[in-house]
Simulated scan of single mutants.
Amino acid sequence: MEIFDLFGENIIIEQQNEKNKQLRSEKQQIKNELHKQKRKKIKQQKYELIQTLETQEQKNEYVHSFKGLRNQKRENGIKSLQSPFKIIIDCGFEENMSDKEQRSLARQISELYTENRKIDGPLKIYVTNIYPILHKYLEQYHYKQWSLISDERLFTEIEELQLANIVYLSPDSEEELLEIKEDEIYVIGGLVDKVIIKNATLNRSRQLGVRSAKLPIGQYIKKNYKKCLNVSTAALMITGWLKYKDWSKAFDSVVPQKFKDQEAEMQ
């Protein structure tokens, strides 16, 4: 009877896992369909707006403005591969994340790539330690077509990075990063943790034997548990500093409004 119950329980668990897998697949299909509908709606809105313009010259100018933006993003993508300023997204935290958090990581990397293409001085991005599950989620964004370096290896195993001056960004580091230097490459931990894991990136830097430093945001966000920026925001803080040479202005330009709202409530 106990053996039967054991096997019966295993069958129930397998059935439940299969149902969950099917449910996730259905949810993704719905999201993809909604995305297609949104793109179609935007296209229709552009078409309707063009019809309201009086002259052909105005219509041509409107169309060229969108083509110019697309061309600029394409050029910035190519420019990023030649940039002297480099960052690494270290995706070596698979065991610390749930499936939902891993999907969120893929989305954040996609957001970073999108934002980086809009910047006049884009960063050269390395996404390393890409494991099979993350690869599956990144594939939904067609990441193999992106203008960046993606690799399944740990960044310390990549030849062109082995002699580099590496700085691993960690909110738990004792050293503050005062400036961004061309001869340094900054590592951002590819970790999405809804419940913050203390010292995760700091321990990672020690394990790999590389220097660690933290972004100087403590004076802007007072509560410790809110000092962990997500992957895309941390990277854009670097581009913000390169633009303004000022961490305060970099913070104001790229950090989500919710962080500023939280700070205002505490004052």
Rank of each mutant, 00 (worst) to 15 (best):
D5F: 09
D5V: 01
L6Q: 09
G8W: 04
Q15V: 03
Q15S: 06
Q16Y: 08
Q16C: 01
N17D: 12
E18I: 06
N20Q: 10
Q28E: 13
Q28Y: 06
K31L: 15
L34C: 06
L34V: 07
L34Y: 09
K38C: 07
K40R: 13
K40I: 09
K41Y: 09
K41W: 05
I42E: 15
I42Q: 14
K43M: 09
K43G: 11
K46T: 02
Y47G: 00
E48M: 07
L49M: 10
L49T: 14
E54G: 09
Q56A: 12
Q56V: 13
Q58H: 10
N60P: 00
N60V: 06
H64C: 01
K67I: 15
L69I: 13
Q72R: 15
Q72K: 15
N76R: 10
G77A: 08
I78H: 03
I78R: 13
K79F: 01
S83T: 11
P84L: 08
F85D: 10
K86C: 07
D90H: 14
E95N: 14
E95W: 00
M97H: 02
K100N: 09
A106P: 01
R107E: 07
S110A: 15
S110Q: 11
L112K: 03
T114L: 06
E115T: 10
I119F: 04
L123Y: 02
L123P: 00
V127I: 15
T128Y: 09
N129H: 12
L134K: 09
L134D: 04
H135Q: 15
E139F: 04
H142G: 05
Y143S: 15
Q145E: 15
W146V: 01
W146S: 04
S147I: 00
L148Y: 03
I149G: 00
D151M: 02
E152R: 12
E152P: 01
L154N: 13
L163H: 12
A164I: 03
I166F: 09
L169Y: 10
S170D: 08
D172N: 11
E174N: 12
E174S: 14
E175G: 01
E179H: 08
K181T: 03
K181P: 01
E182P: 03
Y186C: 06
V187N: 04
G190W: 11
L191F: 04
I197S: 02
K198I: 09
N199K: 10
R204P: 05
R206W: 00
Q207I: 00
V210I: 14
A213M: 05
A213V: 01
K214A: 13
G218Y: 02
I221K: 05
I221Q: 04
K222D: 05
K223T: 12
Y225T: 08
K226I: 00
V231S: 02
V231K: 01
S232H: 12
T233M: 07
A234H: 04
A235Y: 02
A235M: 04
L236Y: 02
M237D: 03
M237P: 00
T239S: 14
G240Y: 09
W241I: 00
Y244D: 02
D246V: 04
D246G: 07
D246S: 12
S248D: 11
D252G: 00
D252Q: 13
K258D: 14
Q262C: 03
A264M: 11
M266D: 14
